[in-house]
Amino acid sequence: MYRIKLHGLGGQGVVTAAKILSHAVSIHENKFGKTVPAFGHERRGAPVFADVMIDDQPVLVNSFVYEPDVVMLFASSAPDRGIPIAKGIHSESILVINTGNEQLVQQLKETYRFKEVYYVDATGIALAEIGRDIPNGAMLGALAGTGIVAIDSITRALVENFKPGEGDRNARAARKAYEQTRKK
């Protein structure tokens, strides 16, 4: 079972991304995904997280993720805001982060001891492809870059979950991010 934790800020589409990820693996890969979003007082810009579990069999657990195999950071500023991005990680845990800044990537990898860090400027891609600072589609593309989910599953799920046009733009952003994702 893969346990994935998505960290971001209100308005970045973190919860939507978590739902689309479950959709992608459950509908297009014959696996079982389950999204467990954390809800409270919804505020734009405030820290948000959502959890996804993916398995080859139905996911029994109805609980949050405490020992993530994958941490996704939609906002590279998260560590500065006191969000414990590395809480519960283990020696195989990887990080997927929205940044083009190689220095930051190196620094995070060393500080938190992630096995691998996958990074892409998802915000830049989102601004170019959809014209808005909502990096969720692009971040899912970056996740596909890790091999956990196929990019085709992600793009199909994006098209199916957004309005016509919007879905295509997000799918383009995802594919672009997938192609541009690099690993450290």
Binding site: A18, K19, S22, H23, S26, I27, F32, G33, K34, T35, V36, P37, A38, F39, V59, N62, S63
Partner: peptide, 12 residues
């Protein structure tokens, strides 16, 4: 159904 753990959890 349990609030949030089921009401807001997306599942197949």
């Amino acid at each position: 159904l349990d609030g949030f753990f089921l009401s807001h959890s997306t599942q197949p």
